[in-house]
């Protein structure tokens, strides 16, 4: 699998601390990649280097196989967490300006902007001033500005903060559509439920260091504790509690810890043999929130 982005032993130091400390990871082409970490972990420092706002003190960054260069910014669409627009500018002019800064010709920019305005059904906003728009409306404009130049890599830093559920879903759908069309996406966040929902790969940064990385599925499997939950409609057999290690019990629900996941079959067969009426039987995988807390706790 080829990589859209390759971070190799990158170090970024500031006066008193090392913000990014020898971090390496790869972002596969076409993936939705989660860049995770608590506040102050070095996510923004890392993103600023990828977007060529700053340069690494050590290490190298490759975008689509090429070392970062003057053309790189045009291949990236970046929506920072701290974002804003020129309040006094008109929506159309503003988008034209930002699109041209990304290397589009005026005619081309105009065409692309029109496509997006139509998609969001806001073509009549062209000559509205930014300051006359609501916060949610401004976010939409911001999103268009980020993707209008058809970047190969989209970097979204906490893209859903400040969005209502409707707009949030709208943007989510657009992100999915962009990803389906082949655009790779880096998704920086500390909100774990979004990671599970959207990402296929992640890297977890803590205190400037890479503490966990890989495919979401694999990581979840690695961190699973072979917990199985059984929901029953009848009483459990008397010797059930002697045969299996119980890690939690609620009304009609019992969680069992097994030696390995191949034991699951044995458990299920036993229950069937005992004529227990099973309503639900599932493996409990750890949430990313748990993995996150566990890993960050370990490395703190």
């Amino acid at each position: 699998m080829s990589m859209i982005l390759s971070i190799q032993n990158v170090v970024k130091r500031y006066q008193k601390h090392t913000a990014v400390d020898n971090v390496s990871f790869d972002v596969p082409k076409g993936s939705v990649f989660g860049l995770l970490g608590p506040n102050g972990a070095g996510k923004t420092s890392l993103i600023r280097m990828i977007t060529t706002i700053t340069a690494p003190d050590e290490g190298q960054i490759f975008l689509d196989g090429q070392k970062l260069n003057a053309e790189s910014p045009n291949l990236i669409g970046y929506m920072p967490e701290e974002r804003g627009l020129y309040k006094k500018m008109k929506v159309g002019e503003h988008l034209l300006y930002l699109a041209q800064l990304k290397g589009l010709s005026p005619a081309n920019a105009r065409k692309e902007i029109d496509v997006w305005l139509e998609k969001f059904e806001i073509t009549d906003w062209w000559s509205k001033k930014v300051e006359d728009l609501s916060k949610g409306m401004q976010q939409k404009i911001q999103f268009i500005a980020t993707v209008v130049h058809r970047p190969k890599l989209l970097i979204l830093d906490e893209p859903f903060t400040g969005l209502d559920p409707i707009n949030s879903n709208l943007i989510k759908d657009e992100i999915a559509a962009l990803n389906a069309s082949g655009i790779s996406i880096i998704f920086s966040t500390h909100r774990m439920e979004q990671v599970e929902e959207m990402c296929d790969h992640i890297v977890l940064i803590n205190r400037g260091k890479n503490v966990l990385q890989g495919e979401v599925k694999t990581i979840k499997n690695e961190y699973k504790q072979n917990l199985f939950q059984v929901e029953t409609a009848s009483e459990l057999p008397d010797d059930f509690r002697n045969r299996f290690q119980i890690s939690g019990e609620e009304k009609n629900k019992v969680t069992v810890r097994l030696e390995s996941d191949s034991e699951a079959e044995r458990l299920l067969r036993y229950l069937l043999d005992q004529k227990v009426r099973i309503q639900r039987f599932e493996e409990l995988l750890p949430t990313f929130n748990e993995i996150f807390i566990a890993r960050v706790g370990e490395t703190a």
Binding site: I53, N74, Y78, P80, R83, G84, L98, L101
Partner: peptide, 15 residues
Amino acid sequence: EEKTNRIVEVIMSSV
């Protein structure tokens, strides 16, 4: 204004 507006980071990613 650009700094307090936070537009500067967007612009900086282009220029």
